[in-house]
Design a protein around this nucleic acid. Sequence first.
DNA 1: AATTACTTGTGCAAACAATCACATAGCTGG
DNA 2: CCAGCTATGTGATTGTTTGCACAAGTAATT
Lengths: 211, 211
Amino acid sequence: MKFSKIPSATITRLSLYSRALEELLLEHVNIIASDKLAQKCGVNPAQVRKDLAYFGEFGVRGVGYFVKELLFEIKKILGLNRRWRMALVGIGNLGLALVAHENFVKQGYEFVAVFDVDPKKVGRRLPSGQIIHHIDELPTVVKEKNIDIGVIATPASQAQATARLLVEAGIKAILNFAPLQIQMPEGYIVENVDFTVKLDNLAYHLTMEAV
Amino acid sequence: MKFSKIPSATITRLSLYSRALEELLLEHVNIIASDKLAQKCGVNPAQVRKDLAYFGEFGVRGVGYFVKELLFEIKKILGLNRRWRMALVGIGNLGLALVAHENFVKQGYEFVAVFDVDPKKVGRRLPSGQIIHHIDELPTVVKEKNIDIGVIATPASQAQATARLLVEAGIKAILNFAPLQIQMPEGYIVENVDFTVKLDNLAYHLTMEAV
DNA sequence: AATTACTTGTGCAAACAATCACATAGCTGG
DNA sequence: CCAGCTATGTGATTGTTTGCACAAGTAATT
């Protein structure tokens, strides 16, 4: 499969399609056309078809897509036909909210280990069951528990060091909630979840509009 | 100013530059070249210069950019030279984490009103000071308190209805944390903060790499 | 004053992404 | 079994974004 030829925006949209299909499935909709799906996801219908075309022919001409089948295929493409084991670093307000978030588990993502530096927190058990490890135990625990993805919810000041630690422990993919750009070696991936950048976008648009 | 000609990616990067410059200011760095700034933000140096060129000439050839001055200009462009008043809807784990997040206030964003539907929560006062209003009071409170930005942290099932409520109350910009695409009338803006989409990206890359 | 070293600002080309528009294929009804 | 209808899959087109490469401007040094 030609990995490099697929636009990253396509992957993001596949994720949206998957979510929309999941919803349709609950509503017992069996068949959906690219128009409808596109509308639900706020994109162009041709875009939907082209995105899917990168990976195969999943529709039936004159009919549309079978919801269940398409969902299955998209999940396979994205790698959602398995469970992913995550480690969380930083048990502040945000960290706690993330661990408690049910959507993750529903989607196949699971926090199997959590870490913090604060001695007052280490050793305590979270409502969701995990025991808080000290960050020094990260290398050992990550290997023991076969972690796939690291999630950084530390203050910005400690985020880069945390990333290095995760990388050294063999983790290839990081979801970063700290407000800074993390530097990573070639071949590793970071995705940033950046509230303030999004807010700045809103502020800019509101400011422009007012001019 | 030609609003429409500026790439949205540029705005997002300006936000990153702003943050990097803020950091440099704390480190008492006076002057910075586009290389260094670019590296700090993980982009191409020419990109930095081009992004800035949309708005004016802020640098000195042969020298670089004065950190303080450039930061001031970028903040002016983004509309960060004022305070923004936000309303939060949905006081779950995530909502609580957001209200407690100090970075917002530091950047000029402030939660001046919070709402929920749960009668058990309504009337209580948060550690950060706000009293939880019932969602029915939203139209009144939003107008009274001159809210600029609405933040949705409700379950997905209630997000679209919440958005409509915010729009009807006169709010033009929404930050959405619920995992779905919100439909908005022309001229309104939504920014989505979407954890699971980001995770799906990571899952995809890990899956591909393994092939 | 001329030379050197440096870094911005920008025209241009290349890469990438989104959209249009239509040929193609499947289904339905007569 | 054919005609008409519908919605996919995709070649062509348009538009957008990025990055290179260099002219232009500044400062420091001789």
